[in-house]
């Protein structure tokens, strides 16, 4: 009962935050566009049309066409699928790793905790994107490898947050009481610790999605992204750069898509943080 009202009051606080609402709506719109957009569009993302290459936006091609006559709107919509999928899947992988790692460190505590957190400390200083680049070079570009490379590198922040949260929860009276009543570890972990850590986890997850989208576009830009004819927003932006002088509109749409989605997820994440942690004052 108490839990429901906690989530409900968080939802209420979230809805009162206009930035977060706008961000949330844009996120929903982007997801909808990514799922349904390519179906509705009369064009495919790989079909060339040499009669209509490098055309500006028009009624038949809202976002124009590229150098092979492919419809840019369709490609941006497909790009949304790939970029959002990278954001979500990579973040989920990093959440699973981070929560498990941080959770174990925090719950077991003692020497295990010290050793595990020292590992996190050590990796924390290394610029992660270098690792990702290295992994992508070694394991060849491709969607699956992007998921894995990003997911396996970006979990450190999550591990730290979860570990801190678990450490402080573990010491609280209600957990102590539960333990005194003879509750098992599983019950304590799932019923009390995880449910109380969910807030920070959701916030970190939401904020790590734009980070992953950004990292993916960066990788695509230096040629380590998905391979043609598939294209993420980063690939589209990179392709457009070479023709920027003659066809600036080609950069505009993927660039706007990346920036707007980063903006939206950041708004939503900030809003969620404020809503889920009432004590946190901005």
């Amino acid at each position: 009962m108490a839990e429901i009202s906690l989530w409900r009051s968080a939802a209420r606080r979230l809805c009162r935050n206009p930035m977060a609402v706008v961000g949330g709506c844009i996120v929903l719109f982007l997801i909808g566009a990514a799922i349904f957009g390519p179906w509705i569009s009369p064009y495919s993302y790989y079909e060339n049309d040499y009669e209509h290459t490098n055309e500006g936006p028009s009624w038949s091609h809202w976002f124009g066409t590229d150098y092979l006559g492919r419809d840019q709107l369709t490609r941006v919509l497909y790009g949304a699928r790939i970029s959002l999928a990278v954001g979500v899947v990579a973040s989920l992988i990093s959440v699973v790793i981070g929560v498990t790692f941080g959770g174990i460190a925090g719950y077991v505590g003692g020497r295990t905790d010290a050793v595990m957190m020292r590992i996190v400390d050590i990796f924390y200083g290394i610029p992660l994107i270098l690792f990702v680049i290295l992994l992508m070079v070694v394991f060849q570009p491709g969607l699956k490898n992007i998921f894995l490379a990003l997911g396996f590198t970006y979990w450190l922040a999550m591990a730290r947050i979860v570990r801190g949260q678990v450490l402080s929860l573990k010491a609280q009276d209600f957990v102590m009481a539960e333990r005194a009543l003879g509750a098992s570890h599983t019950r304590i972990i799932f019923r009390h610790i995880i449910s109380n850590t969910l807030g920070p986890i959701i916030v970190t997850l939401t904020l790590s999605i734009p980070e992953a989208i950004f990292a993916e576009s960066f990788l695509s830009y230096i040629g380590l992204g998905v391979s043609a004819p598939l294209a993420s927003w980063g690939t589209l932006a990179a392709d457009a750069t070479s023709g920027i002088r003659a066809y600036p509109y080609m950069l505009f749409f993927p660039a706007a898509a990346i920036s707007i989605s980063m903006l939206a997820f950041n708004f939503l994440g900030d809003g969620l943080r404020d809503a889920l942690d009432p004590r946190h004052i901005r």
Partner: peptide
């Protein structure tokens, strides 16, 4: 929110 490569371009 704007990646550096977009700003640069």
């Amino acid at each position: 929110s704007v990646p550096s490569f977009i700003l640069a371009t």
